[in-house]
Design a protein around this nucleic acid. Structure first.
Lengths: 248, 248
DNA sequence: CCATCCCCCATTGCATACAATGAGCCACCG
DNA sequence: CGGTGGCTCATTGTATGCAATGGGGGATGG
């Protein structure tokens, strides 16, 4: 059952499976609330259940999947969108990013400028993409992730990297859904980005920290507005027979 | 091969395996640098390789185990102690805890007082335990963890909980090794704890935040001092035949 | 026509089997 | 006596097998 591709990557199969699945979830290809079944994914991805199981375990740990049934057997479903999640995630990522931003702002000037230029480029592309109709939610959420990674990963060590890269796509998932809403407005966010860029360029650590904190606080209210009040409050996940549908 | 204990827990086997292994690592029972082998652990724990493998995957993700061999086969060893790790981990946990402390400090008064009393109790027990000779590194590191969890988990949501509970034992591991050093001094740490307690009791959010940040910054230099300059810099992990030894 | 109960099977949890790989070791050669 | 090549086995990566469980649908009775 191995793919005819002789050596698809240097990364391990569970790792790739995790990322493929996470991508499908983040980009809404497997919708919030959908049940997810080991054997089904294994079949679709052309691997055995073993690596899928390992991927599931990480997805649960990172809160992309949630156990659903009350019984002792744990059925799995894609995590719902909730306003509490937004509040908590945004606060956590705000704490981490504000620290990272202040560290980036005290880098030597040449590097700071380079980072600032790159951030500016991404921010302009974000502005252009936000103006397109119809909106490209995939691209928008990726650019936003790119912007934030742009200054976080700059000074991150291994621990920060792994925490951040588990957390950031979770945020991206909300950004994706935000992008699918007609009333989504990107102007305030883009303006806040510019403040962050300016502080980093000037080497103003305290300013960068505060700009990032403010950005995330503003984002909480913007994002919460587009979360359905009672999100996917199906008291019970229905579909026993169907769940996955999209493509890779 | 299942243990005679009929129903050892409601948690899954991989989960329990993860925690057992993590405990052995945190408490130095499997020493830094030791190789760790699936089949061996499976045998010792009386389970198959499958749950062990899943546990390993999480331990790698959380940086308790590190891949060692350069080849494509990934051999695993217990992560070494390094000064860079201390710096990074302490900064991250400082960011998260300082936020948590400020949240705890704005709880309603009755709850704040309850938390403060509990923290005070733990801190006093810590002082007593630090005075014992010989020092009980297990108990010391557990009390320290208890103190910090005492205010973090008080206001933590699910995301904070899972990040924190993956991170905190990593710190505890360093605290354990700190406790085994003769020159370890707990007085400054205990004093800093008192400052934190006072701020929480008074409902002083900004004070709590700052006290926690200061505490972690002080802790960086204290802890770094007892890390061997070049920790376990064996250029290559030797033992091919032996690795685990301790007991559960 | 609707409620109830029971059986079947979808699905999970864990164990085992099998294939691939590369590290150490030994024999052989210079 | 030291280097080198190949063999072997320890160990990992992936697949498959097997038992347990409990949800849902259909048969049965009201």
């Amino acid at each position: 059952m191995t793919l005819p591709i002789p050596d698809s990557a240097r990364t391990t199969l569970p790792e790739r499976t995790y990322e493929r699945l996470r991508n499908l979830i983040v980009r809404g290809r497997i919708p919030s609330g959908a049940r997810v079944i080991e054997a089904e994914v294994a079949l679709r991805f052309g691997v055995s259940r073993t690596p899928v199981r390992e991927a599931f375990s990480r997805l649960i740990h990172d809160h992309y999947l949630v156990p659903v049934t009350s019984g002792k057997r744990t059925e799995l479903a894609v995590a719902p969108f909730t306003a509490e999640d937004v509040r908590e995630l945004w606060e956590i990522i705000g704490s981490l990013e504000s620290y990272a931003a202040s560290m980036t702002a005290i880098l030597p000037e040449t590097r700071r400028i380079k980072v600032a230029d790159e951030l500016r480029r991404i921010n302009l592309e974000l502005r252009a993409t936000a103006a397109e109709q119809p909106r490209n939610a995939d691209k928008l959420s990726e650019l936003q992730t790119g912007f934030h990674q742009g200054f976080v990963l700059e000074t991150a060590g291994p621990h920060m990297r792994s925490i951040y890269s588990a957390l950031r796509p979770q945020v991206q998932r909300y950004e994706w859904i935000y992008g699918t809403h007609a009333q989504a407005d990107y102007a305030p966010s883009i303006a806040e980005h510019m403040t962050i860029i300016a502080a980093i360029r000037e080497g103003n650590a305290e300013g960068a920290r505060n700009a990032v904190i403010r950005h995330w606080h503003e984002a909480i209210s913007r994002t919460s507005k587009v979360i359905r009040p009672a999100p996917f409050a199906s008291p019970r996940i229905k579909p026993r027979r169907k769940s996955l549908k999209g493509k890779t």
